[in-house]
Computed example of a mutant assay.
Amino acid sequence: MKLNVKNETSRLRAVVLGTAESTGGIPDLSEAYDPKSREHIIAGTYPKEEDMITEIEAVGKVLEKYGVKVFRPKVLEDYNQIFTRDIAFVIEDKFIKANILPDREKEIEAIRHVIDQIPAENVITLPEEAHAEGGDVMVHNDHIFIGTYYGEDYPEYVTARTNLKAVEAITALFPHKTVKTFDLRKSNTEPRDNALHLDCCFQPVGKDKAIIYKGGFLDEKEYQWLVDHFGKQNIFEIEREEMYNMYSNVFSISEEVVISEKKFVRLNNWLRENGITVEEVPYAEIAKQEGLLRCSTLPLIRD
């Protein structure tokens, strides 16, 4: 398989879509990796497996409608494998395995049938001290945008997923690209103040547009850089509650087609006003785990 991912919006040809089968039921509070999951475990509103299966299969149907080759992980019993974006990401023709939470290492083995189709020299494992998750890494043509956390208290945040060692490693792998980092707001307890990944507060869409949440960035200058880069007229600004509902975590099949949650009325209307076809799916149950459509997909090939 010849990988190719140079941005977030070129026509998608192949992707790994997560699975919600056999997720293992409601986790113990001590097993929750993010404050939104904790919130729903405590409230008794954690999503049911059958509802999550329905939601993710709806995405699969949309992808098939557009002729996208869809790979699925091997189902591991009682194991959450919804968020494939966490475990790896593709930049150009390189498949980069994330050094993620140790509890989730089995997930990468569950897509071994995909990895085995990639030339071995193009499968990259980051150095042990470099921690990165795919939700923090966005390829934007000549740029790579990386969400991280600069604070010395990084180890205290289970929500801080990509460190500066990973930024250094990715920069070394792609010296011909401009790497731009963003210091993200983190909270272990309040999901409305937690940008778990960069795609929880920002994402390019269409030819030249972007969705952004100002409050997700600790440094206003970094937020402003993105606004200036895309142009204020091309930016859809989301509010705190919309960030909590994961408005920026949609998924592009192409510059002309976006998969979005059906309840994102304000965003979906804006996308349509800008000439983008919106394929609406139900995804509010999966969103309770602080991840949405981009988190559930690992693009392998784009035109």
Score class of each variant (00 low, 15 high):
residue 163 N to Q: 02
residue 10 S to I: 03
residue 98 A to Q: 03
residue 160 A to T: 01
residue 290 E to W: 11
residue 165 K to L: 08
residue 148 T to S: 14
residue 231 G to V: 12
residue 57 E to L: 14
residue 154 Y to S: 01
residue 5 V to D: 08
residue 257 V to I: 15
residue 157 Y to D: 04
residue 69 K to D: 13
residue 59 V to P: 02
residue 13 R to D: 12
residue 264 F to I: 03
residue 225 W to R: 10
residue 297 T to L: 13
residue 250 V to C: 15
residue 202 F to C: 06
residue 81 Q to W: 00
residue 294 R to P: 00
residue 207 K to S: 14
residue 261 E to M: 08
residue 164 L to P: 04
residue 93 D to K: 08
residue 226 L to Q: 05
residue 147 G to C: 05
residue 216 G to T: 05
residue 157 Y to L: 11
residue 160 A to P: 02
residue 130 A to C: 08
residue 208 D to F: 01
residue 36 K to E: 14
residue 136 D to I: 07
residue 211 I to V: 15
residue 86 D to T: 07
residue 10 S to A: 13
residue 280 E to P: 08
residue 125 T to K: 12
residue 46 Y to K: 00
residue 272 R to H: 02
residue 171 T to D: 13
residue 193 D to Q: 11
residue 138 M to Q: 12
residue 153 D to V: 04
residue 152 E to K: 15
residue 290 E to Q: 14
residue 203 Q to L: 14
residue 17 L to S: 06
residue 120 A to Y: 10
residue 73 P to C: 05
residue 293 L to Y: 05
residue 31 E to P: 00
residue 226 L to Y: 03
residue 109 E to H: 13
residue 17 L to I: 05
residue 59 V to C: 07
residue 270 W to L: 03
residue 277 T to A: 06
residue 99 N to F: 03
residue 134 G to R: 04
residue 221 K to F: 09
residue 233 Q to C: 01
residue 223 Y to L: 09
residue 198 L to Y: 06
residue 50 E to W: 07
residue 300 L to I: 05
residue 273 E to D: 15
residue 301 I to K: 11
residue 263 K to L: 12
residue 17 L to H: 02
residue 273 E to S: 12
residue 169 A to Y: 09
residue 179 V to R: 08
residue 28 D to N: 14
residue 176 H to E: 15
residue 193 D to S: 11
residue 58 A to P: 01
residue 98 A to S: 15
residue 204 P to G: 07
residue 175 P to Q: 06
residue 282 P to H: 10
residue 174 F to W: 04
residue 121 E to I: 09
residue 140 H to G: 00
residue 16 V to W: 06
residue 233 Q to P: 00
residue 265 V to L: 13
residue 289 Q to V: 09
residue 287 A to S: 12
residue 301 I to Q: 12
residue 181 T to D: 07
residue 209 K to G: 02
residue 98 A to L: 05
residue 39 E to Y: 10
residue 86 D to S: 03
residue 216 G to H: 06
residue 245 N to I: 01
residue 282 P to E: 13
residue 292 L to R: 07
residue 239 E to Y: 10
residue 293 L to S: 01
residue 244 Y to Q: 01
residue 72 R to V: 09
residue 224 Q to T: 14
residue 263 K to R: 14
residue 94 K to V: 07
residue 248 S to L: 00
residue 212 I to Q: 04
residue 92 E to R: 13
residue 74 K to V: 15
residue 243 M to L: 04
residue 79 Y to F: 15
residue 69 K to T: 15
residue 291 G to W: 03
residue 136 D to L: 04
residue 122 N to A: 02
residue 299 P to L: 01
residue 289 Q to A: 08
residue 247 Y to P: 03
residue 23 T to Q: 06
residue 159 T to F: 01
residue 52 M to Y: 00
residue 60 G to W: 00
residue 147 G to P: 11
residue 302 R to E: 09
residue 48 K to Y: 10
residue 232 K to Q: 13
residue 120 A to C: 03
residue 275 G to P: 11
residue 123 V to W: 01
residue 77 E to F: 07
residue 222 E to L: 06
residue 70 V to T: 06
residue 218 L to H: 11
residue 251 F to K: 04
residue 149 Y to S: 01
residue 98 A to N: 13
residue 144 I to H: 05
